[in-house]
Simulated assay, not measured.
Amino acid sequence: MTLSTTRYFIELAYDGTSFHGWQIQPNAVSVQELLDRALSTCFRTPVQTTGCGRTDTGVHATRFFAHFDLPESIGRAEQQVHAVNALLPYQIGVKRIFAVQADAHARFDATSRTYHYFIHTRKDPFRHQRSWLLRDELNLAAMNEAASRLFHHTDFSCFSKSNTQTFTNNCRISEAVFTALPDNGLQFTISADRFLRNMVRAIVGTLADVGRAKLSADAFDQIIESRNRSNAGQSVPACGLYLVNITYPYVNEWQQ
């Protein structure tokens, strides 16, 4: 006899500095491992979460979703946010838990994802491991001109980590722009239907070369067309990267 279950989404945020990414690793501490353990302890039943994606070692998330199932006999799960948080380290914070339809999927139902990447240009102890310190002068207009070329392409093999088991390297980018921050920094915002492993950090590294006048916008185009990772720029440090939003097709208030 199969027990009836209820599917829940959980919204959380985490500082990724101390973790080896989201996904459970055999010999390293991950966000998913600690979350699953906390949920299993709180609800007194084994819980396995499925995340909206995977973040690499050192990458942060201000808005991350996962789903999990609980037996229907366990009620009032939505009210256990404080109890779950009490079982988690301070670097992980659960915002809410809410029931969804039985076939809702945190990863496969997501229609877009948005990342921010932060760069600061002066030494700042409060940005250590939170942003990339880059002392070079950057041409913001040139970087944004090159970033706009991303909209003309779908195959981003040149920005993908090699030897990944992906079905396709095609992505549709809907937003890519640098904005100046008032405190000697830059914020890069990028949104797409999906991202390849290491993709955002490789894009930022290549656009930084444009900002330092090492590459032109046309050369940036040619790098994308080459589909060759060795032609693109460095992968910038993980500390500046934040997953900030996931969009789902459900027209429900819980997304707000």
Results as ranks from 00 to 15, higher is better:
L134P: 01
H128E: 11
A142C: 11
S162R: 15
D124H: 05
S131F: 03
S112Y: 09
T114H: 03
A147E: 09
R113S: 04
F167G: 00
W132E: 12
Y115N: 06
S131C: 07
T164E: 15
R122E: 06
A142E: 08
R130F: 14
N139T: 01
C158E: 02
F108I: 00
F159L: 00
L150E: 05
D155V: 10
L138N: 01
D136H: 14
Y115K: 04
C158F: 01
N163H: 14
R127V: 02
D124L: 01
H128M: 07
T166V: 15
A110Q: 08
Q129R: 10
H128G: 00
L134N: 15
H116G: 03
N139M: 09
H116A: 01
K123P: 02
N144M: 11
K123W: 03
S131V: 03
A110S: 15
A142Q: 13
R135Q: 13
S131Q: 01
H120V: 12
L134W: 11
R135W: 09
F156H: 12
R113W: 02
F126N: 04
K123I: 00
R130P: 05
H116W: 12
T168G: 04
A147T: 12
R127H: 12
F108T: 05
S157E: 14
E137L: 09
H128N: 09
D109H: 15
W132I: 02
L138M: 01
A147F: 06
R113Q: 11
F108D: 08
D136P: 01
F159C: 01
N144W: 13
H128R: 13
L133T: 04
A147P: 11
K123M: 05
T166K: 09
R122I: 06
R130C: 05
H116C: 07
A147K: 11
S112K: 10
T114V: 10
L150R: 11
S160M: 13
D136Q: 12
S157A: 15
F156G: 07
A141K: 10
M143S: 05
H153R: 04
K161I: 07
L150V: 08
N139W: 10
A110G: 15
I119H: 06
N139L: 08
R149Q: 05
Y115F: 07
R127C: 10
N139K: 11
A146W: 07
K161N: 04
T121L: 03
Y117T: 13
Y117P: 15
N163L: 13
S160H: 09
H116P: 04
N144G: 13
M143N: 06
F118M: 04
W132D: 12
D155G: 06
F126H: 13
F126S: 11
K161G: 08
N163R: 15
T164G: 04
T168I: 03
R149M: 04
H152R: 10
F167M: 02
T168P: 01
L140D: 08
T114I: 10
S157H: 09
A147M: 15
T114S: 13
H116M: 02
H128D: 03
Q129E: 08
H128F: 12
N144R: 15
E145I: 06
F126L: 15
T154A: 00
L133S: 06
R149I: 12
Q129L: 14
A146M: 08
C158T: 04
L134R: 07
A142L: 15
L138I: 09
T168M: 02
T114P: 00
H116F: 12
N139P: 01
F167L: 14
Q165P: 00
M143H: 04
E137S: 11
